[in-house]
Design a protein around this nucleic acid. Sequence first.
DNA 1: GCGTGTGAATTAGTTCACAGCA
DNA 2: TGCTGTGAACTAATTCACACGC
Lengths: 245, 245
Amino acid sequence: MSQHRHPGAPGRAGAVPALPDLPEATVARLPEYLRALHALADTGHETVSSEGLANAAGVNSAKLRKDLSHLGSYGTRGVGYDVTLLIDQIESVLGLTQCRSVALVGVGNLGHALAGYDGFASRGFRIAALFDADPSRVGEEINGLVVRHVDELARVAVEESISIGVIATPAPAAQAVADQLVAVGVTSILNFAPCVLSVPEGVDVRKVDLAIELQILSFHEHRKASLTALPGGLAATDTQEAIGT
Amino acid sequence: MSQHRHPGAPGRAGAVPALPDLPEATVARLPEYLRALHALADTGHETVSSEGLANAAGVNSAKLRKDLSHLGSYGTRGVGYDVTLLIDQIESVLGLTQCRSVALVGVGNLGHALAGYDGFASRGFRIAALFDADPSRVGEEINGLVVRHVDELARVAVEESISIGVIATPAPAAQAVADQLVAVGVTSILNFAPCVLSVPEGVDVRKVDLAIELQILSFHEHRKASLTALPGGLAATDTQEAIGT
DNA sequence: GCGTGTGAATTAGTTCACAGCA
DNA sequence: TGCTGTGAACTAATTCACACGC
């Protein structure tokens, strides 16, 4: 879907929607808005106000409006945003108008779950291949896909025109896998292994570390406990607001 | 471990290490430093320079020094940081000196993987109870723990003195689970369900949405593609640096 | 001399508040 | 009148660059 040509974007108009170089923080929130918009569309809403959408997405309305303004947005003053139009806009900016193929390396505990996770397919990502280094895992079928040996990565990645690599191996194996992915031309990696990856310029790495999230919560738990226990004055109600991602 | 009393912290010294109210961005990086430090300790290093630790943690050294300075750190000029001392410091600040008990609600695809994830136990978290709403799942044993019905949450949470709740249910069930956790007194929640939770003040929520990470990568993929394809001049090598978390 | 710790400068992100359009 | 879009003000985070102690 979508072939929007909107005015005001810098540079000469081309076949591509002309990406306006969004702030990173905005990019990170667009998927959130998208989810909220889909929910609104499913419940029959045709338009939303910035206030309404902001609530659904868990941000404040000023931030939302500023974010949308960055993509040269199409709201109507006094009315709000057209839900389906905005969905198309955001999907177009995020590059979700084409289905992207994902290669998942490491089908251990976590990888197994990721391979079966519905949330990917339902949002435009296709898990196209599974890999593992452990021969005893090769051949196993998960969710209709056969696990292949990681040595086949190069060949399969090309065949399936892999766009994003997901690493769910143990930490010691992660760097080697990343190197292989990069060698095959993958320029976006999602890393679940608890380690730092070094990759050449032009390759984007995002990291998800489950234990780190818990440790951050632990800090806040700890702080709350020491606030209520120790010092003069402050009651339990005085603590901080819920934090975002 | 650890009962450090360091000077310079504001307020009157008490039994608690006196939390110096760190910037949120710093808190989010401390676990990263901790992991790097443990790796260094395992390989026999006794001290690190800010440069060395920064490399291991994937940040630049100025940022690292500023972060550590916030916790009134103990480096030695001309030498560096004592690895084990710094580990104790950071663990103390993050509240990891006590093992925290985690309740996991929702043992579907993802929950199952989380229940078996080693990374939690190895970093001071104990999964103390598993819950699900589906009766056919209740009674199942995962990793030595029996899945209980979510109705038992209140009783078990108290028994096990749950400190953090992890929600791995489908999105429609998440809010109700969060409400139950809050009702039981849980003030830290890690949410894997793709939805916004509303919780009272004083409760911290962190969210992990796997599909969102992919969508962010998709954006960068899309941008890189449109840069190399379209406009005059810029070659493929000119694209952006790898991004952090 | 080396490397930490930190003020000062810069940049990024958020919030405010209101002009302007439907 | 209601709500978007946005400059301007503010806050948070990062980076610079160097004084100071070992």
